[in-house]
């Protein structure tokens, strides 16, 4: 038996219309039909306060308030109806510092752009299957930033895995494709040499 996803209500907050549409399309295709979108954090937080959402996707870099500030508002504002809601942060900036700062502000999962359907689904499964307890200190409220440690695990650091490029496929190119790319490379080399 698979998940019954049709009962979920999801909020997507991203200033990029393509990404909003792409996320909505994928989530709709797997059976989630109650999907609201907002193009900035202010409108997004307003929507969040009006309805009960099961999951929030937010972009990292937005104006007038950033994705991190939005996470703060969801986690700590007295207006927030659900400070425990899982939040998946999406961003093209997937360096370790960014991922760490997102975690330090209360993000549940990080999704690096560009993403594949497969990776998006794995993040969705992760927030369903591996919820972390919340921690409240003087300076932080959000999911426990310490991952469960498995002493038998001797693979790569999880964060390293998250930052790896998702789909580096090596495919055979036709002669025409190879010639076109090599011509572009020669052009770049020529400009660099001038």
């Amino acid at each position: 038996m698979s998940y019954q996803l049709e009962g979920l209500r999801i909020l997507i907050i991203d200033d990029n219309a393509h990404i909003r549409q792409l996320l909505r399309t994928i989530l709709y295709a797997v059976g989630i039909h109650a999907i609201d979108v907002a193009e900035d954090g202010v409108t997004g937080f307003d929507s969040f306060c009006r309805l009960e959402y099961d999951l929030v996707f937010t972009d990292y870099e937005m104006e007038p308030i950033s994705g991190l500030d939005l996470v703060d508002m969801i986690r700590t504002s007295h207006k927030s109806p659900n400070p425990y809601v899982p939040i998946i942060m999406i961003s093209s900036y997937s360096d370790g510092d960014r991922v760490q700062s997102a975690r330090d502000r209360g993000v549940t999962e990080f999704l690096a752009k560009p993403f594949t359907v497969d990776v998006l689904m794995s993040r969705l499964e992760s927030v369903i299957e591996e919820p972390r307890p919340f921690v409240r200190t003087e300076s932080y409220f959000g999911p426990d930033r310490r991952r469960k440690q498995d002493p038998r695990y001797n693979g790569p650091e999880r964060r390293t895995t998250e930052l790896e490029k998702v789909d580096v496929s090596v495919r055979d190119l036709s002669k025409q494709q190879r010639d076109a790319l090599q011509a572009s490379q020669a052009n770049a080399n020529k400009i660099a040499g001038d």
Partner: peptide, 22 residues
């Protein structure tokens, strides 16, 4: 303070199984 909120998401989507997402 350590808080363990109920897993509302899991309760809503069911227990799943092999494959979890269809």
């Amino acid at each position: 303070q350590l808080i363990t909120p109920p897993n509302l998401l899991k309760a809503k989507v069911g227990k799943g199984g092999m494959g979890r997402i269809d």
